[in-house]
Nucleic acid binder design. Structure first.
Length: 505
RNA sequence: GGUCCGGUGGCAGAGUGGUGAUGUAGCGGACUGCAAAUCCGCGUAUGUGGGUUCGAUUCCCGCCCGGACCUCCA
């Protein structure tokens, strides 16, 4: 019997996962608010949940994965108003970008991707139920959830109402009965998007959207609800309050899986700090699979510091795996047990342990064991890795004239004309192609740059290069240029001196 | 101020009441024209002070440091 354990935020403990219905696992992930490009933190969330979904699909016959799109939001309204366009026009681009970016990370699409704008009837019905149950009230065109009516309010996030009040950073609207009451419905002025409701034209609060969409597509009770840990309060606390009060007896989600936040250079990403990493920009620098891999190199419940150095390491590790796979082109991933990786994931998604197991399989492959390569490929399916062939990964499809030059170098090398061989290797590197000689006299060539480059070292080399240029030291200029180019740097000569750029990893 | 989480080798990052994974970097070696890859070997870590225990990195308490949440946030 396969035993999956997950850390449940609700109980603050690792516990055995017991499905409500083993024939159909139901999972919900809070999706994006579509007003801008996704950032790298969104990516961690989606990648982790993707691994969980893949694992569940391996264990259970059916998994229903719902991830919503929040397309009713004041930030969206602001943009719509500023541009004088509709919500649809504002959200269209961000939704498409989101799908593109998440696709580049090889995350599986959800089975259902509901939008808030398509669930007004459900939203209104839940609010009506809450009013009828005495858990919500109308005040000055707003409908508010009465936290005092719910004895369980605050238990999930571990806060008491007093604690929450003590740190409150917002002004409390006069019409609230309780400072902690939150908005279910708010009125819209004529210039704002709005929908007709029993309480006038208005729009729903954020939290109620997720309650409505999970209810519609997964029912009152479902198995797993995921999100970033910054959503524990207030978003998930409020979802629970709404759903459990609207449907007495409901437990809402059984297991709550929250990933820790991601840091950039040791600090939480925020627009005010200016360290906001847009996923799309990161994907310009490194392949999606390297980004995905970096996000699974640390456990989802520990903070992860996202850095360029980490990206280089992640890509280097993937290179090693692809080399192991490339060594055994005949290896098939069918019917190959990967217990080491499977067991690691069953233990609360221990992806670092799973990666350690991947290296064991790679060791076997390098030792000549095709089963090792097969296991590597099979494990990759479970983790969403190795989505491309080694040939594509290393950029082995080279133009014929490049290949001719490489052959010419091989001849020169065989004739021990090493000056010519090195010159040709350098010329190929200038064009973005890198050669590795094999022990049998053959070679491999691809457009993937080596991983040797250290960014600080590159800065120093370029400084030296500029010094050498100003002092006219031709021999040194040549040596530095070669070293940098062979490490995968593109150099440009500008009026301000040499500038360097790393090739896409 | 309140609540919670964490501090493991140069860096990244797991695990465990009984000689501390894995990767990367470093050093030495094999191989190699050089480089790369691969292989072999070496070295370096459990923040700090107590307690419990035959034994603690692991459990408990204090301290120091870091981070998150306290109604925008993945």
């Amino acid at each position: 019997m396969t035993q999956l354990t997950l850390y449940n935020t609700r109980t603050r403990a690792k516990e055995l996962f017991v499905p409500l219905d083993a024939e159909n696992i139901r999972a919900y992930l809070c999706g994006p608010t579509v007003y801008d490009r996704a950032h790298i933190g969104n990516a961690r969330n989606v990648v982790i949940f993707d691994i969980l979904i893949r694992l569940l699909r391996r264990i259970y016959p059916r998994v229903t994965y719902v991830r919503n799109i929040t397309d009713i939001d004041d930030r969206i309204n602001e943009r719509a108003a500023a541009r004088g366009v509709s919500i649809e026009e504002v959200t269209q681009g961000p939704v498409r970008w989101y799908h593109e970016d998440m696709g580049l990370l090889y995350t599986l699409p959800p089975d259902i991707e509901p939008r808030a704008t398509e669930h007004l009837p459900e939203i209104i019905e839940i609010i009506e139920r809450l009013i009828a149950n005495g858990h919500a009230y109308e005040a000055e065109g707003h409908v508010l959830f009465a936290v005092a009516s719910d004895p369980n309010y605050g238990k999930f996030s571990g806060h008491t109402p007093d604690e929450l009040l003590a740190g409150a950073r917002v002004d409390v609207a006069a019409y609230k009965r309780d400072a902690g009451d939150f908005v279910l419905w708010k009125p819209s002025t004529p210039d704002l998007p709005g929908w007709d409701s029993p309480w006038g034209r208005g729009r729903p609060g954020w939290h109620i959207e997720c309650s409505a969409m999970s209810w519609k597509h997964l029912g009152q009770d479902f198995d797993i609800h995921g999100g970033g840990d910054d959503l524990i309060f207030p978003h998930h606390e409020n979802e629970i309050a709404q759903s459990c009060c609207a449907f007495p007896g409901s437990n809402f989600a059984n297991v709550w899986v929250h990933n820790r936040m991601l840091l950039v250079n040791g600090e939480k990403m925020s627009k005010s700090l200016g360290n906001f990493l847009v996923l799309h920009d990161v994907l310009e620098k490194a392949p999606g699979e390297a980004v995905r891999f970096l996000l699974m190199r640390s456990h989802y419940r520990s903070t992860l510091d996202f850095s360029d150095a980490g990206l280089v390491e992640a890509k280097a590790e993937l290179d090693r795996f692809y080399r192991a796979i490339e060594k055994h082109p005949e290896a098939t991933d069918r019917q190959v047990p990967v217990m080491l990786v499977f067991d690691a994931l069953l233990d609360d998604l221990n992806t670092p342990a799973a990666i350690a197991a991947l290296h064991k399989y790679a060791d076997l492959a390098f030792a000549g064991n095709a089963a090792g390569a097969a296991a590597l490929k099979a494990a990759g399916k479970l983790l969403g890795l190795f989505n491309t062939t080694p040939k594509e990964w290393f950029g082995r499809n080279v133009p014929s004239e490049i290949y001719e030059t490489a052959l010419e170098r091989k001849d020169a090398r065989n004739q021990k004309d090493y000056d010519k061989a090195d010159r040709l290797r350098y010329e190929l590197a200038l064009q973005g192609f890198f050669i590795e000689d094999m022990l049998d006299g053959d070679f491999s060539i691809g457009s993937r740059p080596p991983n040797k480059l250290d960014y600080e070292q590159a800065d120093k080399f370029v400084d030296d290069l500029n010094l050498a240029t100003s002092s006219g030291n031709a021999a040194k200029i040549d040596r530095l240029r070669r070293a940098l180019v062979l490490d995968g740097v593109v150099l440009t000569d500008t009026p301000q001196g040499w500038k360097w750029k790393r090739l896409k990893l």
